[in-house]
Design a protein around this nucleic acid. Structure first.
Length: 586
DNA sequence: GTAGGGTTAG
């Protein structure tokens, strides 16, 4: 027998009281305690006095043991089975507990059982069971629940409908999420937030951004909160919309949300991802209580722009401050090394991360090292490293190596790598294009034709790459040899003029591949057309920038005396005075 | 008289 703790005296105090009103302190003890021994004592007491059959006690008790920090589902089930006539609240507690556990689908079973027992679910039951469907990604069950919600007449419960929206959002059905939203009798900020989050998750970023203004309009009069700002900043980052991001920053300052650490961190990330590192660093420095996310965001910001040494310096400062780096910190740091070609630094960090910081290398860390080895031509070593990893290689890491094969025109290894990709069923159009380019560069046109044929057979479509530029808060999109933009003829005229100027300035056009007018050149020409001289141009491109456009941008930044930031699929290129931050080390 | 609920940064 365990010695009786000091709490038991207070328990015997309860026991001596027969009047219910004196039992109220017991409920507050149940709600607040996290001590196992104390809970066991209360359990024994509730059993002895039959108070366990009173839901006033058993519901908070069940909640206490089934939610964090205790979260003992077996214990919950034991208590649940000791309750002779469980009511809807008991069931709800169990559904919620399961929906948060590692067996979320069991929440649905409890819900079904409850209906079989003849107990009518209330909106909360439906809300919890919907969560369990989200967590277990059970599309069909979720649809069943939706149907039942109508049958039960719960179709005007804002909270329940918000959860339902989240269900459609996480199962990739943004149209249905919107439908539920439209049919809600009233919508609060959280409902708007869920819709915004739904759009950002399902690649409808522009729709998401639009909602930030729509919700504030005369018609809806709904005020964005800190979460809205967070989600909106994410959307700005994705679309590279700096001006919009700045507007959200103003809103944040105006509403006093700049005390929120996660908002500050998001701001650092947004400014980094929009290519404004100066602003990112400013916000970063002003954060009083920087956490691991703040530091990592800043490191990642420098890293993705090719300022590897700055990333390392920030990391050193972080260590000095005593904030322990985690997996993602090292991903950012090592990717910084790989973008800047700091192979020795990367090796040292890779070696130290486990020894000094107790972080085991994961596939992303290996990926950076593979990338670095590949760049300097250690292709076989990189291949062997992938094979020897303690985790299974994914499509991304093979694609990294494929990129290096292209760089060094190594078709033999390239073929081996693409076979690994095919094995993983992860091959994309871009992978074949890479392989195709490898053969093209060594002049093996037979193979080029063969791959083209193969792609046709497999029905692999190539989508033309697009570049976007933000002008006065609006996004302008261009594709290769664009014909769709409203002012396209002016843009072509301007581009021809720019090319003439640049050729005088030393730019030599490299003709290769198809498409005379790459989308990034068009976006830049448009930028020149509509902005005053010396305005910084910021272009976002969905694929990687090619050598020719890179040269073009470099010479352009010198001849036209404009800073240019181009974000491609992998990283940022900051062009200034005829040079690029990547120092031609892609 | 009444136990509980939806969105969230690197």
């Amino acid at each position: 027998m365990k010695p009786i703790s000091s709490h038991s005296s207070s328990l015997s105090h309860f026991a001596s009281q027969s009047n219910q009103t004196h039992l109220e302190p017991l409920i507050s003890v149940i709600k607040s305690t996290t001590q196992r021994t104390q809970l066991l004592q209360i359990h024994a007491y509730l059993l002895r006095t039959s108070l366990l059959q009173e839901s006033t006690f058993s519901v908070p008790f069940l909640n206490r043991i089934s939610l964090p920090p205790i979260q003992n589902l077996n214990y919950s089930l034991q208590i649940f089975s000791q309750i002779l006539n469980p009511n809807v609240m008991h069931y709800n507690t169990m559904i919620r507990a399961y929906s948060m556990s590692i067996h979320p689908e069991r929440g649905f079973y409890v819900y079904r059982d409850m209906i079989r027992q003849g107990i009518r679910p209330n909106p909360q039951s439906s809300s919890f069971v919907t969560k369990s469907c989200i967590r277990s990604s059970s599309l069909f069950r979720g649809l069943q629940i939706h149907a039942r919600i109508f049958r039960d007449g719960h179709h005007s419960d804002t909270l329940l409908l918000t959860t339902l929206m989240d269900f459609y959002s996480s199962s990739g059905n943004s149209n249905n999420a919107h439908k539920v939203f439209d049919e809600m009798p009233q919508r609060d900020t959280i409902a708007w937030n869920v819709l915004i989050s739904c759009y950002t998750r399902n690649n409808r970023t522009r729709d998401a951004l639009h909602l930030f203004d729509t919700m504030q309009s005369q018609e809806h009069k709904c005020k964005p909160d800190d979460v809205t700002c967070l989600l909106t900043l994410q959307a700005c980052s994705n679309l590279c919309m700096l001006e919009f991001g700045e507007r959200v920053h103003e809103y944040i300052k105006h509403h006093g949300y700049n005390q929120s650490l996660n908002l500050c961190n998001s701001l650092v990330s947004m400014y980094s991802k929009c290519g404004d590192l100066k602003k990112a660093y400013e916000v970063f420095q002003d954060i009083p209580n920087k956490d691991v996310v703040s530091w990592t965001s800043m490191i990642s910001g420098f890293a993705s722009s090719g300022y590897g040494q700055e990333a390392i310096n920030v990391f050193k400062e972080m260590v000095k401050t005593g904030i322990p780096p985690d997996e993602q910190t090292f991903t950012a740091l090592l990717s910084g090394c790989s973008h800047s070609g700091l192979i020795n630094e990367a090796r040292f960090i890779f070696d130290q991360m486990e020894k000094q910081f107790n972080v085991t290398p994961n596939i992303h860390h290996y990926g950076c090292i593979v990338d670095l080895m590949g760049r300097v031509g250690l292709l076989e070593d990189a291949y062997n490293l992938i094979i020897s990893m303690n985790c299974t290689p994914d499509a991304t890491i093979w694609r990294t190596l494929l990129g290096s094969c292209k760089l060094h025109s190594h078709f033999d290894l390239g073929e081996r790598v693409i076979n690994h990709l095919i094995e993983l069923k992860g091959q994309e159009a871009g992978d074949y294009i890479l392989l195709l380019n490898i053969y093209h560069s060594i002049g093996n046109f037979e193979k080029v034709m063969e791959i083209r044929k193969l792609m046709k057979e497999k029905g692999i479509q190539t989508t033309p790459s697009a570049s976007t530029i933000e002008i006065k808060g609006e996004i302008h999109e261009f594709r290769v040899d664009d014909t769709l933009h409203l002012r396209i003829s002016e843009v072509y005229e301007k581009l021809d003029e720019i090319e003439k100027q640049l050729k005088i300035g030393g730019y030599v056009e490299e003709i290769g591949g198809k498409g005379r007018y790459h989308s990034e050149k068009l976006a830049m020409a448009f930028g020149v057309l509509v902005t005053p001289p010396r305005t910084k141009l910021r272009v976002a491109k969905d694929l990687r920038i090619c050598v020719d456009c890179h040269n073009f941008a470099k010479v352009f930044s010198g001849v036209y005396d404009r800073e240019v930031v181009i974000r491609d699929r992998m990283r940022f290129h900051h062009f200034r005075e005829g040079r690029c931050s990547c120092n031609d080390f892609w």
